[in-house]
């Protein structure tokens, strides 16, 4: 079985590239984006099991990127990984549709567990959407 597909978004290039390398060595398939706009572009062309997203970024910040990712596709599962992990911030990002917020730096295993959770949740959502679509088609056909 192939590893989870992850999009890692962080303007700290050194951090993003090193974390990506470590996740890849554990079998995950990781792409990296260094700003919100690039993340949106990547996510519009490719399906990811999880997006790991920083908040404080130049240009389009993490919160706005999160909102747009979720508006474009509600199956996208976003894990916010930030140095600003306060209760208020957690509430704000979860309200905007994030799966969870982790304090940066997060233990690698904790992040991987969260990515696996995101992947499972996404798979369930995809299945649910497919069932709804099928029911809709069957309803229209009168089956």
């Amino acid at each position: 079985m192939e590893g989870e597909r992850v999009l890692l978004v962080d303007d700290e290039r050194e951090f993003a590239e090193t974390l990506a390398e470590r996740l890849k060595s554990r079998g995950l398939r990781v792409d990296v984006a260094f700003d919100g706009q690039s993340a949106l572009e990547r996510a519009s062309h490719k399906t990811y099991d999880a997006v790991v997203l920083d908040l404080a970024m130049p240009g389009l910040d993490g919160l706005e990127t999160l909102r747009r990712l979720r508006a474009n596709n509600d199956e996208v599962q976003v894990i916010v990984l930030t140095g600003q992990a306060t209760v208020d911030k957690a509430l704000e990002v979860i309200k905007a549709g994030a799966l969870d917020l982790l304090q940066k730096p997060a233990p690698l295993q904790e992040l991987i567990t969260k990515i696996e959770e995101a992947s499972s949740r996404r798979a369930l959502l995809v299945e649910k959407h497919m069932e709804e679509k099928l029911k809709d088609i069957m309803g229209k056909k009168g089956w």
Binding site: E12, E14, F15, T18, E21, R22, G83, K104, P105, L108
Partner: peptide
């Protein structure tokens, strides 16, 4: 904090 996070990941690597 960003610097710390990078150093932790590099040490982990």
């Amino acid at each position: 904090n960003n610097v710390t996070a990078i150093l932790i990941e590099l040490a982990g690597l």
